[in-house]
Amino acid sequence: MTKILVTGATGTIGKHIVSSLAAAGSEVRALVRDPDTASLPAGVEAVRGDLSAPETLEPALRGVRSVYLMWPGIPVEPGVVERIAGHAEHVVYLSADVTDLADGERPTIYHQEIERLIRASGLRWTFVRAIDFATNTLAWADQIKRGVVRWPYGRAARSLIHERDIADVAVHALTTPGHDKAKYLITGPEAITHADQVRIIGEAIGREVRWEDLPPDIAREQLTAAWGNPEFVAARLKAWAGFVDTPERVTDTVEQLLGRPARTFRAWAEEHAGDFR
């Protein structure tokens, strides 16, 4: 048996990775900021550590063979990869579609840098490059509760992926052979427009929810005020505009790896209906 360290162990994806590994009998160690308050399955070892402070990772890495690494959007710390390479043999890194994100978008920058560091580290590596998450539509929750979503580019078609599919692919890469130097681009099974995503969420909660297209100039102003980064907002608007005429790509990578189709957006909406009521 080999010990697996999971970072982001209580997060949206990490919690599913931890649960799946523990259920399969893997020896799991969870990196958390506060072991006393972390809610983890029985048998999972919680160890204190913080990715923003690489020196805190040493206790968590001792005796570990594989690491699931996610990066929470903080400045890149090269020492994290160096310390992982000093202990582990294999890292599965949750990345993004770094070949196709809009120029100026922050995730492209830090994902590319961390991938570069991992490649140069001597570790065996697997990159799980996930298209945008279905969970990001939770940003509409307050508007959906009011019955109307005002957002730009209602005809932009996105191939959002369920967080449990991301977790299942990561677990597969951590626990089965043959994934060294693999770069898996994973998406949902179809591209669905913003407006249809809202309609599907409305059907899941049993209430009609209207879509109103927000003019891009107004969206730019509102999103800049909310997100605080004009370049990021501009990149997002540019990407969404592009998805109106050219839907976001769809891959069958989840099915190829796991032997079953990726979960649909409707399945995600039904699972998360309570978040929108």
Rank of each mutant, 00 (worst) to 15 (best):
T2M: 14
T7V: 11
A9M: 02
T10Y: 07
G11A: 04
G11F: 04
T12G: 09
I13V: 15
K15V: 09
H16S: 15
H16C: 08
I17P: 04
I17F: 11
S19I: 09
A22P: 10
A24T: 07
V28F: 09
V28C: 10
V28D: 06
L31G: 05
D36Y: 00
S39L: 13
L40T: 02
P41D: 04
E45Q: 12
R48P: 05
S52R: 11
P54G: 03
E58V: 12
E58K: 10
G63A: 06
G63C: 04
V64N: 02
W71C: 04
P72G: 10
I74G: 05
P75D: 13
G79P: 02
V81G: 08
V81K: 09
R83H: 07
I84W: 01
G86H: 11
E89K: 14
V92P: 09
S95K: 09
A96K: 11
T99N: 09
R106K: 14
E113P: 01
I114E: 10
L117Q: 05
I118M: 03
I118T: 03
I118V: 12
A120N: 02
W125I: 01
F127K: 01
A130D: 08
I131T: 10
I131Y: 08
A134K: 01
T137I: 10
D142N: 02
D142H: 00
D142W: 00
R146M: 10
G147M: 11
W151F: 12
R155C: 07
R155M: 10
R155V: 02
A156K: 01
A157H: 08
A167K: 06
A167V: 07
D168L: 00
H172T: 13
A173T: 15
G178Y: 04
H179D: 06
K181W: 00
K181P: 00
L185K: 01
I192G: 06
T193K: 10
H194A: 13
D196H: 14
D196T: 10
Q197S: 13
V198P: 02
I201F: 04
G202H: 13
A204F: 08
R207H: 03
R210V: 07
E212M: 14
D213N: 07
P216G: 05
L223S: 06
T224A: 12
T224H: 11
A225G: 12
A225V: 09
G228F: 03
N229V: 07
P230I: 10
E231Y: 05
A234F: 04
L237V: 08
L237E: 05
K238Q: 14
W240N: 11
G242S: 11
F243R: 11
T246E: 15
P247L: 00
E248K: 02
E248D: 07
E248N: 09
V250P: 03
D252K: 14
D252A: 15
Q256T: 15
G259F: 08
R260S: 12
P261T: 05
A262N: 07
R263V: 08
A267N: 06
A267H: 11
A269N: 07
E270S: 01
A273D: 02
G274R: 06
